[in-house]
């Protein structure tokens, strides 16, 4: 293994790492909020909202992320990183919405009925009673989606997003040291995904303990 590739190009690797981290964190937070919103649309007691939610999920999760990325990039003429982060959010939202919806549906119907019969609105019942219980069920599948999100962010390279993968492409093209460059990049990705995995596992255990 040729570590001079790392030391000679450390600035580019770090820049890529920073960009990947940023795109991932922003897309993660945004898709979590949007995903919860779409999940509630899909189960709200209103046919029109259900449809809107279903159309979003089925449309988005059934086309390749790369196409969504190119679409946002070309149609809206954003910079690569911006377009990439938006596309990642749009795409991940569909999967997170499904995970959250499954979590909500796993909570017994009686919880909603008890809450509503005490005079709480649908929104209050959702926020105070259903979602806090659903979150425990949803943590493991959400963890999977977050990890996928970080890995999927490598597609941003295709639209010159400046991320880890993009930097690696540049370095390997210039130095012709292909194998070692990509092994190093893989390690940088692990630096993001392994702590994420551990964090999710920890959260899962802690929530399980609180009854």
């Amino acid at each position: 293994m040729n570590f001079s590739i790392l030391t000679n190009n450390i600035d580019m690797f770090l820049e890529g790492f920073k960009v990947t981290l940023m795109a991932s964190v922003i897309a993660l937070i945004a898709s979590l909020l949007l995903g919860a919103f779409i999940a509630v649309l899909r189960i709200a007691p209103n046919k029109l909202l259900n449809w809107l939610g279903t159309i979003y999920v089925e449309f988005i999760r059934n086309i390749p992320l790369l196409i969504i990325m190119l679409f946002v990039y070309l149609v809206f003429n954003f910079k690569g990183l911006t377009a990439g982060t938006i596309a990642l959010t749009i795409y991940t939202t569909a999967f997170i919405a499904e995970a959250i919806r499954a979590g909500i549906l796993s909570i017994s119907k009686g919880q909603m009925e008890a809450a509503r019969s005490s005079g709480l609105t649908y929104g209050q019942a959702m926020r105070l009673i259903i979602l806090p219980q659903a979150i425990k069920v949803v943590i493991p599948p959400l963890g999977n989606q977050f990890i996928n999100l970080v890995k999927n962010s490598s597609l941003v390279a295709v639209i010159a997003g400046g991320d880890l993968m993009y930097q690696a492409d540049l370095i390997s093209a210039r130095t012709l040291v292909v194998m070692d460059t990509y092994i190093l990049v893989a390690m940088f990705y692990l630096l993001l995904t392994i702590p994420l995995s551990l964090g999710v596992g920890y959260l899962e255990k802690r929530l399980a303990k609180s009854n």
């Binding site: 009686g110 009925e113 809450a115 019969s117 009673i129 806090p132 219980q133 609180s210 009854n211």
Partner: peptide, 11 residues
């Protein structure tokens, strides 16, 4: 309203 299966909020 009181239900057969109580439906207390477990959390």
């Amino acid at each position: 309203m009181v239900f057969q299966h109580f439906h207390l909020y477990p959390h």
